[in-house]
Amino acid sequence: MKKINYIICLVLIAVFIISNLVIKMDLIIRFVNPMILSIILCLYRIFLGPSPADRAVATDILGLIVVGICGIITVFTKAAFFIDVAIAWALQSFIGNLALAKYLEGKKFDE
């Protein structure tokens, strides 16, 4: 059963990569598409994660991936302010994750 699941996932990813390379579209969309797929995988873990810690891990990773998307948009649209967005998002994501970890630990915030 596990083997069959593995093969199905492999075929789906191969179809995704080939269609991403073959279908005619702009270069920026080709570069952003895999990042959207990774955001969807993170959202899967956020919705179905068995414990709160799993959801916290997925949120951490989601923040870093959004920072990466801001970098890609900076390269292709030549809009310089997106890199400021990336800096602010990285700072805010780090602080938010530390607060989330403190909350999970079950302690008071002013320790």
């Binding site: 810690a53 916290a56 990285a90 994750n97 530390l98 970890a101 403190k102 999970l104 630990e105």
Partner: peptide, 18 residues
């Protein structure tokens, strides 16, 4: 910062009983 936040999350997960 990325290793620091992962370290904090691992410690918090262990202390919350996962």
């Amino acid at each position: 910062t990325s290793p620091v936040s992962s370290h904090a999350l691992a410690k918090a997960a262990y202390k919350s009983g996962v």
